[in-house]
């Protein structure tokens, strides 16, 4: 997994653990946590494959834009790999 990642903007219904306030936001992988059973399957009593889970660090500026209380404060969250895509510098432009 590359260092910079973006959380998908997908908004499916159902039990997902990628919080809405981080969707579409770009962060940096703080650490890889290993593979964990996919909660989107477990929640419905379905067989669940183990998916890579990452701790991703976001700046307040990235998450809240101009409304950020302090731009360089951060939020770390655990996000499953299927919600993340690698980001290159070029794609970073708005």
């Amino acid at each position: 997994m590359p260092e910079r990642v973006r959380v998908s903007r997908r908004m499916p219904p159902g039990h997902v653990r990628a919080p809405a306030y981080l969707r579409g936001k770009t962060g940096v992988v703080e650490r890889a946590l290993g593979r964990f059973a996919n909660p989107e399957q477990l929640a419905y009593g379905l067989p669940a494959g183990k998916e890579p889970l990452y701790r991703v660090r976001f700046t307040m500026a990235e998450v809240w834009g101009a409304a950020a209380e302090r731009p360089d404060d951060t939020i770390d969250a655990e996000i499953f790999a299927h919600w993340l895509t690698p980001v290159t510098e070029r794609q970073d432009a708005p």
Partner: peptide, 8 residues
């Protein structure tokens, strides 16, 4: 059940 099932 799983804790995920409870949360759901």
């Amino acid at each position: 059940f799983t804790v995920d099932g409870l949360r759901r």
